[in-house]
């Protein structure tokens, strides 16, 4: 077997060399191949963001050398003393001039690295500043910190899935279920013949549902809505995560949901009984989530016709359904 393996490795090595040689032959015999490769590279440059293209170019050592040479030429043009000014005929003097030029080249490269490090620092700094600003927003901080100390909101149960499907069974266009977990509500909607997809920021929950053939996507619910075109959904279902958000974020969410829903569409909010919270959960989640009455008030203030329906046998006790007018 060792001999067989050695023979096999040698054969693979020969093939590697053959492949390179064959590609060279093809290029030589068929100049259009090289042109095609260039066109493909150009097409990718058009698809890629400019910063990415620059970033990739910058890591190629040959092109770095080329860029530095170009930069050196620009510096020569700006210099008050021409680079080829006579400095004397002695050989040593010319060598010193050459060494200075090499040092200048090295210094330009050093400057470029410093600028790169500064840019990295700047991106990092801006990112951490953005995070601090987010933390200064009280409800974001409460949701982030307090959520760590209490259990996650449970997945939807079959009763809730069926109730939501009943509310949206007449929807003809797509329905988005926000904070879908592993997809119980999406599954109930699909069974009712509604085109539905779910969004959740837990990749693990989403993968479970995806394994069962559901259209679930891993994303932050509000971010997902912000990328949907105006009036392109016939329904939006707000569940689970709305119990852990404060009034500021929830009003933004309502506005986004109304923007995405077609005039004939519906928004359904699954509301749990906040009064049923007890112990640490009651204290730590104070101020997060809204009661059915407040949801109805906010949606009504935005011109929706609102209905509330009670659920029995489920953790979620009320469905608030809104139709834009």
């Amino acid at each position: 077997m060792p001999n067989d393996a050695t023979g096999a490795r040698e054969y693979v090595k020969r093939v590697q060399a053959d492949i390179t040689e064959e590609a060279r032959r093809r290029r030589a015999s068929n100049p259009t191949l090289m042109v095609q490769e260039q066109e493909i590279n150009q097409a990718w440059t058009r698809s890629a963001p400019s910063a990415a293209a620059v970033g990739r170019d910058a890591v190629s050592p040959a092109e770095v050398t080329e860029h530095v040479a170009h930069l050196l030429g620009c510096v020569d043009d700006l210099s008050l003393i021409h680079v080829d000014a006579p400095v004397g005929k002695r050989r040593g003097v010319r060598q010193v001039k050459g060494a200075i030029r090499l040092l200048t080249r090295w210094y330009l490269r050093y400057l470029a690295n410093q600028i790169s490090a500064f840019n990295h620092f700047l991106v990092d700094f801006l990112r951490s500043a953005e995070q601090r600003i987010a933390r200064l927003e009280g409800d974001a901080r409460a949701a982030e910190i307090m959520g760590e100390f209490v259990d996650p909101v449970p997945e939807a149960d079959p009763v809730l899935g069926r109730a939501v499907a009943d509310q949206l069974s007449e929807c003809e266009g797509p329905v988005a279920v926000l904070s879908c977990g592993s997809g119980q509500i999406v599954s109930a909607l699909v069974e009712a013949g509604v085109t539905a997809h779910g969004v959740d920021d837990s990749v693990d929950a989403v993968s479970d549902g995806v394994d069962e053939g559901l259209d679930l996507r891993a994303a932050a619910p509000l971010d997902h809505l912000s990328r949907i075109a105006d009036g392109s959904l016939s329904g939006v279902v707000l569940t689970r995560f709305v119990e852990r958000r404060g009034p500021v974020e929830l009003t933004t969410l309502i506005d986004e949901a109304l923007r995405c829903v077609a005039p004939s569409g519906r928004i359904v909010v699954a509301v749990a009984d906040l009064g049923a919270r007890s112990g640490p959960e009651a204290e730590l989640l104070r101020g997060l989530g809204l009661s059915p009455q407040t949801w109805a008030h906010l949606l009504g203030k935005r011109g929706c016709v609102v209905e509330e329906s009670e659920l029995t046998g489920a953790r979620v006790t009320t469905l608030v359904t809104a139709r834009p007018q």
Binding site: V12, V15, Q16, R26
Partner: peptide, 27 residues
Amino acid sequence: GAGVVLEDKSAGVVASAIERVVSDELL
């Protein structure tokens, strides 16, 4: 050493490598 390792990944070379692996039974 248990696979074909390419030092050049331009489109033509990779295409040639795939073509070869598909067609060469011994390889």
